[in-house]
Amino acid sequence: MSEFARFTGTTTYLTSPSLESAVNCALALERPLLVRGEPGTGKTLLAEAVSAALDHELIRWNVKSTTRAQDGLYVYDTVQRLYDSRFQDKNVGDIRQYIKLGPMGEAFAAKKRVVLLIDEIDKADVEFPNDLLNELDRMRFTIDELQEEVAATQRPVVIITSNAEKELPDAFLRRCVFHFIDFPTPELMADIVRVHHPDLEDRLAEQAIEAFFELRAMKRLRKRPSTSELVDWIAVLRAAGVADVKLEAALPFLGTLLKKEQDLVAFADQLSGGKRWRS
């Protein structure tokens, strides 16, 4: 097998051996890399880091609930063509000018190798990943209107992100190299906090992180707070001049961390040693 560029992280994006290994597997085997993990663990940033490290252009495809697989390949603007047909200034016989490549189409058509990020694939319809299987496998598709094939000369590096909670079809999963980004450890979290709040007092940082992880450890929370919530919370604490925090019933600005009413109730319940109901 030919040598390939290995990914070892960038100066601003810290990796772990297992993440590097997963990225390198995807690069070597030319398979899509599926990254899953809780929100706020840097899934999307990974694509940027890979693109920067390998010096490939990054093409993003942000998936929405209405996105169809076809949108990623190309769009044929029939209405524009119809309108143009009324005037003589454009040659409507040339269908090409009404075909617009989608992000995936662009990635295939690119002359150089690119990084294609398919962000939050789970947001679309349940069948969406299945519709992409063939194109991802063969890295080519046909534009029916032109009878022309778009084929990737350099197979793009495909990075797909998905939220941890949603199920994806098995057939799709089989074709991907999988990596699950862990939630940061307290030590890593301390580093992350320091990046966002460089001049934070050590004592407050320690206490806040400790309280944060204890909060996350509570079993009955529906939505556990993530990194961004911790960062916000610390910002609020500092703005209000709070000097120290402890995990008691009166945790200041709890609303920044827990966003669901049931969670606030569950939290109060747990601290007051209230009766536990069936979980």
Partner: peptide
């Protein structure tokens, strides 16, 4: 790490 990335899908 390699085996985990390739053999595990969820």
């Amino acid at each position: 790490h390699v085996a985990r990335a390739l053999l595990v899908h969820r």
